[in-house]
């Protein structure tokens, strides 16, 4: 240690040691910079050239975008995306939220039900598509089954109807994702409830003699000073209503 030569070596090692975190984060960070940011820029650049099968560097401005917007296929796809996107979000959130509120009612079999609602998230959408394609098959699927049961006029042939097929995609996608929305809402509800009960203990005024704390109805003035409650009141009110 007393040897100056040794001390100098130590300090080089020390310095290496000090920059080790940066050296460790560096390579993965550079990978992300290249493969995410670099590639997005690359795609953006190629879109401004007249590349075909092979990329060229012939700069053309926004001409490809103009061509794309004029394409019939683009318009159809964009229209479908609007239908799919809005209905998918609407139904997944509605169904997920309702299921979460219902599951939050001290259901004994909550764990089992949650597992059932969420399993579609674990499988590939190719599998989901295969399953629904078979179920909705007009000649052998649910349509023919209902007709065999005696409901002769039952019709559900959306999957082979070019105007309705996109709604079937929504159906399958909602089936796959609504359980996940349920899980998100449920954990949010639980967090709110924890915060709320903690606050009730520390902050709520002593209940008047005639009523007990538990008879304090949602949205009653006795709740009003709980800021976290007022934000979530509509949802909690719904859940307390059924209790």
């Amino acid at each position: 240690m007393s040897n100056p030569q040794q001390r100098k070596q130590m300090s080089v090692l020390d310095r290496l040691q000090r920059y080790l975190p940066q050296l460790v984060v560096g390579p993965p960070f550079l990978l992300i910079v290249f493969f995410v940011y670099g590639f997005i820029a690359w795609t953006g650049f190629i879109s401004l050239t007249n590349s075909r099968m092979l990329p060229t560097f012939d700069f053309q401005g926004i001409q490809q975008y103009v061509r794309l917007l004029a394409m019939d296929r683009w318009n159809v796809a964009f229209h479908n995306l609007l239908i799919f996107g809005s209905l998918y979000i609407l139904f997944a959130i509605t169904i997920g939220c309702v299921l979460a509120v219902l599951l939050d009612q001290r259901i004994r079999a909550e764990g089992a039900l949650r597992t059932i609602y969420l399993y579609p998230m674990a499988i590939s959408f190719i599998v989901t598509g295969t399953a629904w394609k078979w179920i909705l098959n007009p000649s052998l699927g649910i349509e023919s089954y209902m007709q065999q049961l005696g409901w002769e006029s039952f019709q559900f042939d959306w999957i082979v109807n070019r105007d309705m097929a996109i709604y079937v995609v929504v159906l399958a996608a909602v089936w796959q994702a609504s359980g996940f929305v349920m899980a998100l809402f449920l954990s949010a509800l639980r967090t709110v409830m924890r915060t709320l009960s903690a606050r009730l203990i520390w902050m709520a005024p002593a209940p008047p003699a005639s009523t007990s704390a538990s008879s304090c109805r949602p949205c009653d003035p006795c709740f009003s000073r709980l800021s976290s409650f007022s934000r979530t009141c509509p949802l909690r009110a719904l859940t307390l209503w059924w209790r």
Binding site: Y117, Y119, P120, A131, W175, G179
Partner: peptide, 8 residues
């Protein structure tokens, strides 16, 4: 939710 997996 279980319907499709049962059918498959």
């Amino acid at each position: 939710y279980l319907g499709p997996i049962y059918v498959v």
